[in-house]
Simulated scan of single mutants.
Amino acid sequence: PCRVDLYTDSRYLQEGITRYIPLWERNDWLTRDGRPVKNRALWRTLHRLARMHRITWHWLRGHDGHPLNELADRLATAARQRLAQEPAAESPTQDADDSLPTALVYVKASGRGASGWGAVLRDGLQVRPLSGTAAPATVNALLIRGATEALRALDGQHRVILHSDAGYLVNGGARWAAAWQARGWLTKDGRPVANRELWEELLAEARRHRVTWVRGPGDAPTGPDDLALAGKLAARR
């Protein structure tokens, strides 16, 4: 545990963590007028982490010359500009619902030796290693199977952030599959899409959730280790 002085120019953040969260918790994460609290999953994560430390929250006026606040503002602006230049990576089939629980999924596949897939599923405080095999199967087919089984293992609807270092899986789930479907499961040059049946099965599972597809381990502190573990699970098959 640490003693933390946390400065922000956001009243929403400061009052949310110091005043509103106890009220939301007592009201089953509903506002006073009975609507689901926006950004519920993010608030719950922040609250859990904040309880690990002694935090003093300080509000300061935005753009008032505080050097660290100005630096934070520049970093946020740069991040927003980068995101604006990148293609959307969220499943288009789901409406936004901030009340959904969040699950992190990490998927890898191995074509060496006994071909297999591995996945690490983080659902709240629960961490589940998953793995499987299929023979004969390409690495691409195993990636799709791993993602499908990880989504299938979730009970109830979730906001899922699905990570893989395989562009085939991430781009396929985020962008290509929608285009393939629109063309009757044909590629741009008119050929049948490989692994169509597996993709259809994966998309059916993805429609149960709100899925964001991420290339690489993402920003979670455990992401690199979880993706590495998924690779080890795949290689053990």
Rank of each mutant, 00 (worst) to 15 (best):
W117K: 04
N195V: 06
A235K: 04
H66N: 12
E15G: 00
D225N: 00
N69E: 06
A109G: 06
R128E: 15
A119E: 13
T77Q: 14
R210A: 13
I144T: 06
L6G: 05
P224R: 00
H66C: 02
A50L: 05
R40L: 09
P192L: 09
S91V: 06
Q14K: 14
K188I: 05
T18C: 03
D33V: 08
Y20Q: 12
D73P: 00
R207N: 13
D189G: 00
H163E: 15
A72Q: 05
Q94F: 02
G132K: 02
D226G: 00
G156R: 11
V211I: 09
T212N: 01
S110M: 08
I17Q: 10
T56S: 06
Y168M: 03
A84R: 13
A96W: 13
I55N: 02
A147T: 08
A220W: 02
R112P: 10
T187L: 09
L75S: 00
P36Q: 09
G132I: 06
R32M: 10
I161S: 08
D219N: 01
A235N: 02
Y20E: 08
H209L: 04
A76G: 07
R51S: 10
E86W: 11
E15Q: 09
I144Q: 08
T77Y: 03
A166V: 12
I55V: 14
E200M: 07
Y7G: 03
L23P: 00
R145T: 14
A72H: 08
H63R: 09
S131V: 01
G113D: 14
Q126R: 14
Q81M: 12
A204E: 14
V120C: 10
A150F: 08
W199P: 11
P101Q: 13
A109F: 04
I21F: 05
W117V: 12
A235V: 02
L130F: 01
P217M: 01
Y7L: 12
V193L: 03
I17T: 07
A114G: 11
A206G: 03
E200Q: 15
Y106A: 11
D9K: 00
G65S: 03
L130I: 07
P1A: 14
T31Y: 08
L229C: 01
L233R: 00
L142W: 06
G184P: 12
P136S: 02
L83H: 13
A204R: 13
E25A: 08
D5A: 12
K188V: 14
H63F: 02
D219M: 00
W24N: 07
G113V: 15
W213E: 05
R152L: 10
A135P: 01
E86F: 02
Y106P: 13
L154P: 11
E149Y: 09
E201I: 00
L71S: 05
L162D: 11
D165T: 13
A141S: 11
T77V: 12
R82F: 07
R236F: 04
N69Q: 04
D64P: 00
D165C: 10
G132D: 11
D95F: 07
L151Q: 03
V193R: 02
R145L: 15
R26W: 01
L162W: 09
A194K: 14
W57T: 01
W176I: 05
A206R: 06
P87W: 06
Y12V: 04
A194G: 10
H163G: 14
G156P: 11
L30N: 09
A230G: 00
R237E: 07
L154F: 12
E15H: 03
Y12I: 01
A50W: 10
W213G: 01
G231D: 10
H58K: 02
A235T: 01
W199G: 05
